[in-house]
Amino acid sequence: MSKARTSPVRSAAAHAILITYTVVALFPVLVIIINSFKERRAIFRSPLSLPNAESFSLIGYDTVLAQGDFLLYFQNSLIVTVMSITGVLLFGAMAAFALAEYRFRGNPLMALYLALGIMIPIRLGTVAILQMMVAGGLVNTLTALILVYTAQGLPLAIFILSEFMKQVSDDLKNAGRMDGLSEYRIFFRLVLPLVRPAMATVAVFTMIPIWNDLWFPLILAPAESTKTITLGAQVFIGQFVTNWNAVLAALSLAILPVLILYLIFSRQLIRGITSGAVK
């Protein structure tokens, strides 16, 4: 009886906490979007107020679309992000399946090597990466960014996915082998559908650093034809003068893909994060 009485209270408290966290997380995003529709003076005078008839202005969006090739920057970011996530999920899942399923002499050393890849940031090797890209003729190409971001996301993806794949029933995989399925079919038809929440989690946490990154686009692909949306937004930030209307408008447009991806994968993301936490 006591559990039945307290469960609605706990449910209400959980919902209140969830709403609070959501408001706190979305508040900076809302402030950026609201101020992107204001004139410059209103941004600094009343940053938390909604735009009205006097303060409303689309000059930031007009500037973004007129100055520079924002649609090209957006396209470049989309191509790099989608291709990098695809590579991380595909190769990461295959490597994680091998580590979780097969026992070989170098298995622990490989797992340790991948763990070190999580702790050591890839930016420490920027000079060596740039030298390799120059030698391969990949500077100022989207391929260079895709390769770097794929390598950057693989250690964490393999670490997370291998733990989930260890939880997949061995009886299910052995039954597939008895039915004549190859290891590739077992991987793609039996294992991957069961780890979709983990795949969605890896996809979201891989996308955000790639989409928001400024370092590698500035080092490897600073040309006008290969600029990403984050690097393109730096056009409006000067040493002495910053066009805040354009900056906020560019940031508002750049936020949209992240929000769309979160809405698409939110259920799988929550399942992936909370898997194993509640029994």
Rank of each mutant, 00 (worst) to 15 (best):
R196K: 08
P155C: 07
L50V: 02
Q167E: 13
G153Y: 04
I219H: 05
F216G: 04
L253F: 10
Q75D: 11
P193V: 13
V258S: 12
T20L: 08
I255K: 05
I43V: 13
G276N: 07
T63F: 02
T81W: 10
F44C: 01
E183I: 14
E54S: 13
R40D: 02
P155K: 08
L138W: 05
L18M: 11
I146V: 11
I17Q: 10
I17M: 07
I129S: 08
K166E: 09
L269D: 03
R41I: 06
N243Y: 15
S169Q: 09
T274L: 14
A200I: 06
L161I: 09
D171Y: 14
L194E: 14
F188A: 02
I208G: 02
S252Y: 03
R45W: 08
M133A: 05
T206E: 05
I210Q: 08
Q131V: 14
M133T: 02
R196L: 07
I33Y: 08
L65E: 01
G238C: 14
G87K: 14
M199Q: 15
P51Y: 01
L90W: 10
L72E: 06
R10L: 11
G176H: 11
I43W: 07
P28Q: 08
A144W: 15
I237Y: 02
I255T: 13
T20V: 08
S46L: 15
F104I: 06
G137W: 14
T22S: 06
V127H: 09
R267Q: 13
S57P: 00
A254C: 01
L145A: 04
F74M: 03
V88P: 02
S266A: 10
A128M: 08
L78E: 05
A100K: 11
L220E: 14
V148E: 05
I270W: 14
L192T: 09
R189K: 12
P222W: 15
L253P: 00
M83W: 15
Y262A: 04
G276F: 10
L194C: 15
S275Y: 13
L112R: 06
R40W: 06
A144S: 10
A277T: 07
V241S: 01
D179C: 03
A254N: 01
A198V: 01
L218A: 12
L78W: 04
R185Y: 11
G136E: 00
L263D: 07
F91H: 10
F240I: 13
S49E: 15
A157W: 15
G92Y: 10
G276M: 10
I120F: 10
V139D: 07
R271Q: 12
L50D: 00
E39T: 06
T143E: 13
I34Q: 02
I85H: 00
V29W: 00
S55D: 06
L138M: 03
L147E: 13
V235D: 03
F70K: 03
W215V: 11
I17L: 12
Q167D: 12
V127Y: 10
E101T: 14
I219A: 06
I129F: 13
R41P: 00
Q268L: 15
Y113F: 05
W244N: 01
R196I: 04
G117V: 07
P193N: 15
I59A: 04
I160R: 03
F97T: 09
A14Y: 14
A198H: 02
I59T: 05
Q239F: 07
D62G: 03
